[in-house]
């Protein structure tokens, strides 16, 4: 099979006949295949082994295909996941693509389609690896956004940050996005007091070894907490302080300016 890429594939389906069929075909194409009938067990296998692609059935007891995508994407955002679904299940196909699935195939399985989609997935993987190597040449890449003070804009910034994190080969993406969400929401709602005439400035700086995010609002600032001894309120029900606590927990460093209207947080590359 000249010019055909091979890799390690996890196949998940509660239908043993489909598992056998896919497993036999993919092995004949030169791939390493792990076939699993149970979604929860498949997730444990995924955590323990390295795979280049995942094929999962949509409708399964316990964990369905959407659960599988969510859980796997939390562990490895860039792995291609291909969903197997019954013909006509458009709603679930759309949902799976929104969650980050690479592609889908309808049952009954068409072997030629399996081959074609797997090859596309591996090609995309290879391109992604080349992109990740780009950071080794990187000194710094800085983007600055001055955004109207509205939480609705967080989605666009978050989308940009996520695509850049993938591009520069970061893996702790959801933790960094959570920190951005908390800091941006804090700037809009507390710093700027939800004043739509004010702005939030967001600077995202990628370096060779870390990403640094600075969020500054136009408000009067606030008393900067002592972050070294920062802990949650003893009253777990108390409403304040959780955002800062989450940022402090998930980012490697966090600091405020003296005025208290600018937060800078950074996360090292894993």
């Amino acid at each position: 099979m000249p010019n055909r890429m091979t890799g390690s594939i996890l196949v998940i389906d509660d239908d043993e006949s489909i598992l056998r069929l896919l497993s036999k075909f993919l092995k004949s194409e030169g791939h390493n295949v792990v076939a699993e009938i149970n979604g929860n067990t498949a997730l444990e296998i995924f955590k323990a082994q390295k795979f280049d692609a995942v094929i999962t059935d949509m409708y399964m007891p316990e964990l369905d295909g959407l659960d599988i995508i969510r859980n796997i994407k939390d562990i490895n955002q860039s792995i291609p996941i291909i969903v197997l679904t019954a013909a006509g299940s458009i709603t679930n196909v759309v949902q799976s693509l929104k969650l980050g699935a690479f592609n889908y195939m309808t049952k009954p399985v068409n072997i030629n389609e399996v081959r074609e989609i797997i090859q596309k997935a591996f090609l995309t993987n290879a391109a992604s690896r080349q992109q990740k190597n780009f950071y080794t040449f990187l000194q710094s890449a800085v983007s600055v956004f001055k955004i109207k003070s509205a939480v609705e804009h967080l989605e666009e910034i978050s989308y940009y940050l996520n695509s850049m994190l993938v591009f520069y080969g970061f893996s702790s993406n959801w933790q960094i996005q959570l920190a951005l969400t908390e800091a941006f929401t804090n700037a809009v709602c507390h710093g700027n007091g939800s004043d739509p005439d004010k702005f939030v400035t967001c600077e995202i700086a990628f370096g060779r070894d870390d990403v640094k995010i600075t969020i500054e609002d136009e408000g009067p600032g606030f008393k900067v907490p002592d972050l070294k001894s920062y802990k949650l309120n003893d009253d777990i029900y108390a409403g304040s302080g959780r955002g800062i606590f989450l940022i402090n927990s998930y980012m490697d460093s966090i600091e405020f300016n003296e005025k208290g209207n600018r937060i800078t947080m950074s996360k090292k590359r894993d």
């Binding site: 969510r70 969650l99 959801w174 996005q177 959570l178 969400t181 908390e182 929401t185 777990i236 029900y237 409403g239 959780r242 955002g243 606590f245 989450l246």
Partner: peptide
């Protein structure tokens, strides 16, 4: 898919 401190506050 995601949660934030606000929703955590609502739940608690």
């Amino acid at each position: 898919q995601n949660i934030n401190s606000h929703l955590i506050g609502v739940i608690s």
